[in-house]
Simulated assay, not measured.
Amino acid sequence: MSESTAVRVDPSNERMLEAWNGDDGALWAKRAQRFNDGVAAYRDTFFSAADIQPVDRVLDVGCGAGETTRDAARRASRGSAYGVDLSGEMLAVARGLAERERLPNVSFEQADAQVHPFPEAGFDVVISRHGSMFFGTPLAAFANLARATRPGGRLVLLTWQPFRLNEWITTFRTIFAAGREVPTGDLALSDPRATEELLTSAGYADVRCTAVSKPMYFGEDVDDAAEFIVEQHGGRLRELDEAARAKAVETLRADLAEHQTGRGVVYDSAAWLIEARRP
């Protein structure tokens, strides 16, 4: 684990720091490529909207293991790409991959984007692939990002639509509940009207939310997918006795088998592509 005390965070994000700079971040660092493969179908749509130019300065918020930051750096070949995240372990993976890929115009920093002192108007494009939904105080966070976006600069986010529209989330939540109450509630930015109001209040304009649906990849076959999903989502299984755990895993495997395709195990997913401009 990285030294969390070295990271300046807003009090409302301390729990996120504990999670992402702890066990959650360690899992995502270990499984970085699998998480990237899972949402790979969104990649072209996301970067088409970002429209990164060769001289652009790009900020990647919640960059994780840095795939989107490195993608941005390749597009901004005469500019730069700067990724920030709360997870020290994921950033270590990101730096290693950037070095291996010999990308001289990419850098990473462990930081809370809600309070980090970004250079004013320092970026042409601000992007975030599923990393902007966890702020403790979203208005303060996006106001900070708007301040860092140059006039005329762009904000492009990929976020999840309500969980009920995401087959993979509803399925796994129900299976791992194992007859108990299924967790409810959605992540931030799942309501397009509220998102428009939020980003407008933060200092952005021309906010547009476009519904995008793509298949989510979970593994090459049932065994591969089951191992990954239990590792990621199976925390609730620890509260069950051995027989109930075994039954839940059996139910999961049966559902995965129904989603086996020639492209591996895939489930439907639904996201918002959010675009805005700094006036």
Score class of each variant (00 low, 15 high):
1 M>D: 15
1 M>K: 12
1 M>S: 15
4 S>A: 11
7 V>G: 13
8 R>P: 09
8 R>S: 15
8 R>D: 15
9 V>N: 10
9 V>E: 11
9 V>H: 13
10 D>V: 08
11 P>Y: 07
15 R>N: 14
16 M>N: 12
16 M>H: 02
17 L>H: 09
19 A>V: 01
24 D>I: 09
28 W>R: 03
29 A>G: 01
30 K>M: 10
36 N>F: 08
36 N>T: 05
39 V>I: 14
46 F>K: 00
51 D>R: 04
52 I>R: 07
52 I>L: 06
58 V>C: 06
60 D>C: 07
63 C>S: 07
66 G>Q: 05
66 G>S: 09
68 T>G: 00
69 T>C: 12
70 R>A: 00
76 A>D: 06
77 S>I: 06
78 R>M: 05
80 S>M: 15
80 S>A: 15
83 G>T: 08
84 V>Y: 03
84 V>M: 01
85 D>L: 06
89 E>F: 04
99 E>T: 15
101 E>T: 02
103 L>S: 02
103 L>P: 02
105 N>C: 09
106 V>G: 04
107 S>I: 05
112 D>I: 07
113 A>E: 06
114 Q>G: 07
117 P>C: 11
120 E>Q: 06
121 A>Y: 06
126 V>I: 11
127 I>C: 02
131 G>E: 01
131 G>Q: 02
136 G>D: 10
137 T>R: 05
137 T>K: 06
138 P>E: 02
140 A>N: 04
142 F>G: 02
143 A>Q: 12
144 N>R: 10
148 A>L: 01
149 T>L: 10
151 P>S: 04
151 P>A: 01
153 G>I: 02
153 G>T: 10
154 R>V: 07
155 L>Q: 00
157 L>F: 11
160 W>L: 14
160 W>N: 13
162 P>D: 14
162 P>E: 11
164 R>E: 14
170 T>M: 13
170 T>A: 12
175 I>M: 08
175 I>D: 05
177 A>T: 10
178 A>C: 14
179 G>Y: 08
179 G>Q: 05
181 E>V: 13
183 P>Q: 02
184 T>N: 09
186 D>T: 05
192 P>A: 03
199 L>K: 11
200 T>W: 03
200 T>Q: 06
200 T>Y: 00
202 A>I: 03
202 A>H: 01
204 Y>S: 06
207 V>I: 05
208 R>H: 14
208 R>A: 15
209 C>Y: 01
209 C>W: 04
210 T>I: 06
220 E>A: 15
222 V>L: 08
223 D>M: 07
224 D>W: 08
225 A>Q: 12
225 A>P: 10
225 A>Y: 08
232 Q>P: 01
232 Q>C: 07
236 R>L: 09
237 L>C: 03
240 L>Y: 00
243 A>Y: 05
249 V>C: 00
251 T>K: 13
252 L>W: 02
253 R>V: 12
254 A>K: 15
258 E>G: 10
261 T>Q: 10
263 R>T: 04
264 G>M: 15
265 V>L: 12
268 D>A: 14
269 S>T: 12
269 S>D: 14
271 A>W: 13
274 I>N: 10
275 E>L: 03
278 R>M: 04
